[in-house]
Simulated scan of single mutants.
Amino acid sequence: MAYYTAETAGDWDAYCELMSVPRRKLLMEVYDESDVPVPAEPTPEDCAKSMAKDRARPKGTGHTYQVVGEVSEVPESMDHPPGVGVWVMKEYTLDGERGRTLEAVLMVQDGDKWLVDNEADNPRADEPTTSRRLVAILS
């Protein structure tokens, strides 16, 4: 849950430390609107700088996070290594409205740490196959 807590708090150093190199690269490619090329293997520091300038947004209040269901083995697929998948229920209040999302999360082991490598809440048909596959494995 430290990953989500760091994101909610805008603690980009901690947030980026808790994700795999491919995840950092993907988020930087998606959210960094500068003209600076994204490094092939971005460090947590590269990621944190990018997130700090490009992810300022309302975060809501009263966030809670809970792992629901069983942990499942997830085999290697496309550009994601094997790992474990879990469902995380996120609840929050934003603009006075209570909200809830359920996300499938792929975690991969890196030494003695477990890092977030992929997240998917309700992938559309046009989203990457790995997101749909992760949801299917955990469902």
Rank of each mutant, 00 (worst) to 15 (best):
Y31W: 15
R24Y: 04
P39G: 02
S34P: 00
S34V: 03
E33S: 14
R24T: 07
M19I: 05
A52D: 03
D54Q: 01
C16G: 14
R55Q: 15
E33K: 14
D35L: 07
V30K: 13
R55K: 14
L26N: 07
E41K: 13
E45M: 04
E33D: 15
E17I: 09
Y31A: 10
E41L: 11
E29P: 08
E41P: 14
D13A: 05
V38S: 08
P37V: 02
K49V: 04
L27H: 12
V36E: 09
D13I: 05
E33A: 10
P39Q: 08
P44N: 04
L26M: 12
E41R: 08
V30R: 15
M51N: 11
P44E: 11
E45P: 07
D54R: 06
D32N: 15
M19L: 05
R24L: 05
Y15Q: 00
V30G: 12
A40T: 04
V38N: 10
C47S: 06
R23P: 07
D54M: 03
R24C: 01
E29R: 11
L26D: 11
E17D: 10
P37S: 12
K53M: 01
K25W: 01
E33G: 12
S50H: 00
V38F: 11
E17H: 09
A52Q: 05
L18V: 01
D32I: 11
R55A: 15
V21W: 07
D35K: 00
Y15R: 09
E45D: 13
V36R: 03
D35R: 01
A14N: 01
V36F: 00
D46R: 04
K49Q: 10
L18E: 04
P42D: 11
D46C: 02
A14L: 00
L18A: 03
D13M: 09
D35I: 07
Y15T: 07
S50D: 09
A40P: 01
D46M: 02
M19E: 05
